[in-house]
């Protein structure tokens, strides 16, 4: 039992009255803060705070073998860790299904939006660049999907690109930027009773019946994920997509600013 679980009834009764615990509107984000370059050892990094949620994304670039079915393309590998220091509800051990879902949803958005052109990561026959994105959850207070996607996007947008010379990877010195072709963001909605809320915090996520994440760039929806057993109507999904396009304008601007573009 945790205090979050005991707050479910309270959150539900507030939402019925059209209110949120912290006084926000249903379709408003908490304060978002993006800090790039916190981990200079990584080729790219970004720490993202959404309210009290704190996520750090690290990007490492290395070399490896291409996938058998795509011999002329590099690899993109995304992982997520719900670190035990982020919440008393997280435990040590192998990645939970929740962590794997988080990594895969972030990965799909980045891949589908063509943030990284994997064909440009080809080095020579049997050798390609590999981009590792690690999403480290440092403090949990809801909405890890948006924090993870924003952090990964900002880390990629600000990453440097090592060089490959005479069979060696050069990681230091005068390096250019990792080539990124797009910026993807996501908006996550919680279904709580008959209400739909953007950017659920930890208490709201404990109380929610369903969750919907819409990842998009300027032009199209690039990934979606409905989570938990609660359901969404066609109308609610359409509205979520409309709002996601609307809100993503600011998010993209923040990512580009943080990456110094």
């Amino acid at each position: 039992m945790t205090i979050r679980k005991a707050m479910v009834g309270y959150v539900e009764s507030m939402v019925k009255k059209g209110l949120r615990e912290d006084g926000r509107g249903f379709m408003n984000y908490r304060d978002i803060c993006i800090n790039t370059g916190k981990i200079p050892n990584a080729e790219g990094s970004a720490e993202v705070d959404i309210g009290y949620t704190k996520v750090l994304a690290g990007v490492k670039v290395g070399t490896g073998e291409p996938m058998k079915d795509k011999p002329d393309e590099g690899n993109l590998l995304t992982s997520a860790e719900l670190l035990p220091l982020a919440s008393e509800e997280y435990d040590v051990g192998p990645p939970s299904p929740e962590a794997i879902e988080l990594a895969r949803v972030v990965d799909r958005g980045i891949r589908a939006a063509g943030v990284i052109d994997t064909k440009s990561l080809f080095i020579e026959e049997g050798k390609v660049w590999e981009i590792f994105i690690d999403i480290y959850v440092l403090n949990y207070d809801g909405n890890l999907f948006d924090a993870g996607t924003i952090a990964a996007s900002a880390a990629l947008a600000s990453a440097r690109m090592p060089k490959y010379e005479n069979g060696e990877v050069i990681r230091e010195g005068n390096l250019g930027r990792l080539k990124t072709g797009n910026v993807v963001t996501s908006c996550t909605f919680a279904k709580l009773g008959s209400a739909v809320l953007l950017d659920p915090d930890g208490n709201e996520e404990t109380a929610m019946d369903g969750r919907l994440t819409v990842a998009n760039d300027e032009n199209a929806v690039r990934a979606m994920q409905k989570g938990l057993s609660g359901s969404f109507s066609f109308g609610e999904i359409d509205k979520a997509i409309e709002l996601s396009f609307e809100r993503s304008k600011d998010l993209r601007k923040m990512i580009k600013n943080s990456a110094g573009e």
Partner: peptide, 18 residues
Amino acid sequence: CRYSMAPFSSLEEHGRSG
């Protein structure tokens, strides 16, 4: 106690997690 290193923590190759 759990001491652990992030896979992106070193200047070299990407580490293994856990």
